[in-house]
Design a protein around this nucleic acid. Structure first.
Length: 424
RNA sequence: GUCCCCAUCAUCUAGCGGCCUAGGAUACCGGGUUUUCAUCCCGGCGGCAGGGGUUCAAAUCCCCUUGGGGACACCA
């Protein structure tokens, strides 16, 4: 039975590196029909906070990384004490300056097999004796991790590369405790654009910050998975596909740079594929964020119009923030226009006729609008090309966007007419 | 400094001795489609860090150099 764990220390938010570690463990567990354990390593009382725990949990839930078992390391201190005592009794550890030290043999070397890195050898003399219990009675990470992983019968320890050098000490502890060794797999790090370890100074590193900025969780998962893992030439994956396809063999061994540009592209791919109802639901808070559009206006717009609007606009949106701002034209709010439209007298007369034609349409569908407008223009010898940009600017405030008639239809007759009148 | 790991286009990567005059994706640059933009389609740009071996054959195996990352706490 496969058992893996994600063991974050709650000293801050869940960052993208931790999220990827969690994801790989979770994918591995789900792929192998195993168990995924979430263990909060909150033994550092100074730095651990409840808020961090809540944040980590919220981030994991957002990503859809669910767990089968949940532990808090502080709740296990009795077991840690028991295990430490055992080592003391068996003279494998000794006391010095009030702390308990694990004895590392002076001679010899230790080789372990890493599923990703291959065989790695350390000489004992490089390890030196190390503290397992501090003089204040608390336990050190390298010790509790081993006791917990052994107790929880973790079969595969999949974690960041930065733990590679901890591994030999931990193996020594497994042996001292007479526990079976798990398989180790150390994932390459995620780097910032300057090729140093990803950190705050690289900008956004909090997973939930990406939710706030309008990314889809499945896009985040897809992107994180592709950072270090691959499956041939495929770039876009659903969650289920990732579970089906994920193996450690597909994981690379060199560090990867976090590329936000590609994240945007992947998010766009997932936005195009997502269920429209869900898109509308998720974009709502972004639309309401700046107070320009009220909840009442949103509800008044009606489901169909929101659905149609989202459908028209999502192809050119990288995030929900983008989509929300382009959906603003659907509401009866003043538009910020990219440029001022000034019509000639002749064009004004044409526009009068067009507005008149719009009034006669029975059902304000794109097809009907198109026919009415084209007819009105044709009768006056004006090409659509001659006026499309002006009308678009008046109606949407921007020179770019979906088809003019689609937009007119979804924005609605009254709003379109009043916006067109503004440029008369 | 010591130890550990890594090394294919700007970036993510395919490649696990011959299918490689190195494939895909993002980005970028052209073209097509469109009333515009985006999407979409087509095309282009661009890389095996360097040097030695091994082999009939090396991006792939070995060694060295260089470069990068990480670890060296009574933090996790």
């Amino acid at each position: 039975m496969t058992r893996v764990r994600f063991a974050p220390s709650p000293t801050g938010y869940l960052h993208v590196g931790g999220a990827r570690t969690a994801l790989f463990n979770w994918l591995f567990a789900r792929h192998n029909k195993g168990t995924f354990v979430l263990r909060i390593e909150d033994t550092d009382q100074e730095r651990s906070t409840e808020a961090s725990i809540e944040h980590i949990i919220e981030a994991m839930q957002w990503l859809g990384i669910n767990w089968d078992e949940y532990y808090r390391q502080t709740e296990r201190s009795k077991r840690h004490q028991q295990a430490a005592l055992e080592l003391m009794d068996r003279k494998l550890a000794y006391e010095h300056d009030g702390a308990w030290w694990f004895r590392v043999p002076e001679q010899g070397e230790l080789t372990f097999h890493d599923a990703l890195l291959g065989d790695i050898t350390f000489r004992h003399e490089q390890l030196k004796d190390f503290v397992i219990r501090r003089s204040d009675g608390s336990f050190v990470y390298n010790f509790v991790v081993v006791v917990d992983d052994a107790d929880m019968r973790i079969t595969h320890v999949i974690r960041g590369d930065d733990h590679t050098t901890n591994t030999p000490r931990q193996i020594l502890l497994y042996q001292a405790l007479e526990k079976p060794l798990p398989q180790f797999a150390h994932l390459p790090m995620i780097l910032g654009p300057d090729r140093t370890r990803l950190s705050k100074r690289h900008g956004v590193t909090s997973v939930l910050e990406y939710r706030r900025r309008g990314f889809l969780p499945e896009a985040m998962v897809n992107f994180l998975a592709r950072l270090g893992w691959s499956h041939g030439d495929q770039e876009v994956f659903t969650g289920d596909q990732l579970i089906e396809l994920f193996t450690l063999q597909g994981v690379g061994s060199s560090a990867a740079v976090f590329d936000e540009v590609k994240l945007h592209w992947i998010n766009q791919q997932h936005m195009k594929a997502a269920d429209l109802d869900r898109i509308v639901e998720l974009v709502k808070p972004f639309a309401l964020k700046d107070d320009l559009i009220t909840e009442a206006m949103w509800d008044q717009a009606g489901k169909d119009r929101l659905l149609t609007g989202a459908k028209l606009l999502r192809d050119r949106s990288k995030t929900f923030a983008d989509l929300a701002s382009s959906m603003r034209v659907l509401f009866p709010v003043p538009l910020e226009k990219e440029e001022n439209v000034v019509l000639s007298q002749q064009k004004k007369e044409v526009l009068q006729a067009v507005i008149g034609a719009l009034s006669t349409i029975e059902e304000f569908t794109p097809e009907n609008v198109q026919e009415a407008v084209r007819t009105a223009l044709k009768e006056r010898g004006v090409g659509l090309r001659d006026v499309a940009h002006d009308y678009r600017m008046a109606i949407t405030g921007t020179g770019v966007g979906p088809g003019l008639f689609d937009m007119m239809s979804v924005i609605g007759r009254d709003c379109v007419k009043s916006r067109l009148k503004e440029i008369l």
